[in-house]
């Protein structure tokens, strides 16, 4: 293979120097710190992130309008929101393992929010969506050039909300309300409770619950982000960071100069790029097989492939 990690100018292991961010972040707080730095320095004037229900209910003017009944919204359901303060960014930190359609806000961000320079965080598929709408802006007038910073997060798979609910409440026998953090790492799905309990589920259990659309996905490390980041490859509390585009390069260099991050060479950390490469290859190979299998899914009938 060889292309599994995408194009990049640099790869490091990094974490935020902001203790407050590290307290709330999923891993090294790369996303929150980077967007925060970009806000501070005017690189962006707002960012699209995934907020939780408490934040969303309180700041309804910042989220997408949908049919939500706030009395009924479950914990751990993410909502895409356009935020423009560091406090709000912090409130959005942490991974929510179910779908947050962040790209749904990208046009509105430039409209009723009045943003000229939009930041966005998203999974690899969401980065693909952003780049597609920049090159082929079919329903995205005056949006492409306004995307000032796109931060991609690594992603093996995502889940529908009900899947997470069943994993947490059935398999792990915990209440959704009492979950503090969820994480996939070291071959397990980890659920941390607010009272300190920790449950781990083998990934064998989680596979069935994955969203089917993920099974044709050919990108693990957000090849199309300006900067992409994830936990895999770096020690606990640290993140692996790929600096990919010209924009990414300049933002990262400036953030480093401003002391936003501390870094270690990726070659020096364990498990390092080797594991990232291995997982990326596994994902891509598996999903290429799915795409192949779709060709002969029926009798003389194929399922569609989106790739041309």
């Amino acid at each position: 293979m060889g292309a599994e990690l995408g194009k990049y100018k640099a790869c490091v292991s990094a974490r935020s120097t902001d203790k407050e961010i590290l307290k709330h972040a999923q891993d090294g707080g790369i996303v929150t710190s980077l967007l925060g730095y970009a806000l501070d320095t005017g690189i962006i004037d707002g960012a699209i992130v995934a907020v939780n229900k408490e934040f969303a209910a309180k700041h309804q003017s910042l989220i997408m309008r949908d049919n939500t009944n706030w009395d009924m919204v479950e914990p751990w359901r993410p909502f895409p929101a356009v935020v423009s303060t560091k406090a709000d960014l912090l409130a959005a930190a942490g991974t929510k393992y179910n779908i947050s359609p962040n790209v749904s806000m990208i046009k509105e961000a430039t409209r009723s929010f009045g943003l000229d320079k939009v930041g966005i965080v998203g999974t690899p598929c969401q980065m693909q969506a952003v780049r597609k709408l920049q090159l082929y802006p079919i329903g995205a007038r005056d949006v492409g050039a306004a995307v000032a910073l796109a931060v991609g997060i690594f992603c093996m798979e995502n889940f529908p909300y009900q899947s997470i609910l069943q994993l947490v409440e059935d398999h792990a026998a915990m209440k959704m309300e009492s979950v503090k953090k969820m994480e996939i790492g070291k071959g397990k799905f980890w659920i941390y409770g607010k009272r300190g309990q920790v449950v781990q589920l083998p990934l064998k259990v989680t596979h069935k619950y994955e969203q089917p659309g993920c099974h044709v996905c050919l990108d693990y490390v957000a090849n199309l982000g300006d900067i992409s980041t994830g936990s895999v490859g770096s020690p606990d509390g640290w993140s692996t960071v790929f600096v990919r585009s010209k924009i990414g390069d300049s933002v990262w260099a400036n953030a480093m100069a401003a002391g936003v991050f501390e870094t270690q060479p990726i070659e020096k950390v364990k498990p390092g790029l080797e594991l990232v490469t291995k997982l990326a290859n596994e994902k891509i190979t598996k999903n290429k097989n799915t795409l192949e299998a779709r060709k002969t899914f029926g009798v003389g009938k194929a399922l569609r492939s989106p790739y041309i």
């Binding site: 003017s61 309008r65 009723s112 929010f113 009045g114 000229d116």
Partner: peptide
């Protein structure tokens, strides 16, 4: 209207 404008949007206009 579906949405009001933000303070930032108002300033921009």
């Amino acid at each position: 209207m579906y949405r009001n404008c933000s303070e930032q949007a108002k300033t921009k206009m």
